[in-house]
Design a protein around this nucleic acid. Structure first.
Lengths: 129, 129
DNA sequence: AATTATATACGAAATCATTCGTAAATGCAA
DNA sequence: TTGCATTTACGAATGATTTCGTATATAATT
């Protein structure tokens, strides 16, 4: 299996993308250590996943040195947007409003964050028309 | 496999829950017809899924008549909340704010909905302290 | 140089979700 | 009653994702 078209990351792949997004280009060892902060994952498991991600073009790697360095090859907010789209349809029948109400209702959001969201809404209210 | 502890619905199960939530207690035939409005699913596939859902306690069924009647056994907004929680962690590293900004940013939300969200935020701003 | 540690490659096992074929039971209609 | 349609039960095939064992290569250490 080589050269695939654009594919959405699976859960395990997304977990790795998060690490690459947060930390920049990284070795398998580093990514595996990060994963193991939360749950147990074997080294070769992480390696395999990251190789698959390269195959899917979700990541790229630099093989100059013996320790290959992997980097995300997809944009964080684009990816989030696509996943959100699907989640929204599946879980909230497409109602962004319902989702937002749930998200704000269930989580204690700081005043500062609330203000930021309100600001965005107000901007949308004037611009959107 | 009988009597399981609380489990999250899979994608296919969630699709069926949506139908049960929207339409109330239903037969397999009805659910299968609804699913087939969108995509092709065999009758026994739907049946099997719904049986699994009973096993997982996601649904209950009434077997009085030959045609069993299935009903959701989990609450819609509770379920949405749990799924949201997981999605939020996986995709937005737990930042509800980021998710909300994406959700509002990407989808054209009507002025009425924006107003509703703003109202909620304002209520939270006064209550929350 | 020999040993040990660390890396990649690869295939295949394990797990989980989805799909369906087939058999058996039940009700309905001719 | 006989046959046809509809239903449930069950097991197993399929497919996708995740996990890991083993082989091999490369570098570092003694």
């Amino acid at each position: 299996m080589t050269a695939e078209k654009y594919q959405k990351p699976t859960d395990a792949e997304l977990e790795i993308l998060q690490i690459l997004w947060a930390n920049g280009p990284s070795s398998v060892r580093f990514v595996n250590d990060q994963l193991n902060l939360h749950r147990e994952v074997g080294y070769t498991t992480s390696l395999k996943l990251m190789q698959i991600m390269v195959d899917k073009k979700l990541a790229i790697r630099n093989t100059d040195s013996r320790t290959h360095i992997y980097a995300a090859n997809v944009n964080e907010s684009d990816t989030q947007g696509k996943l959100l789209e699907k989640f929204l349809d599946r879980t909230f029948r497409g109602s962004a409003t319902q989702l937002v109400l749930q998200a704000l209702g269930n989580h204690k959001t700081s005043p500062k964050e609330l203000a930021a969201i309100k600001a965005l809404i107000e901007k949308m209210e004037t611009t959107g028309d």
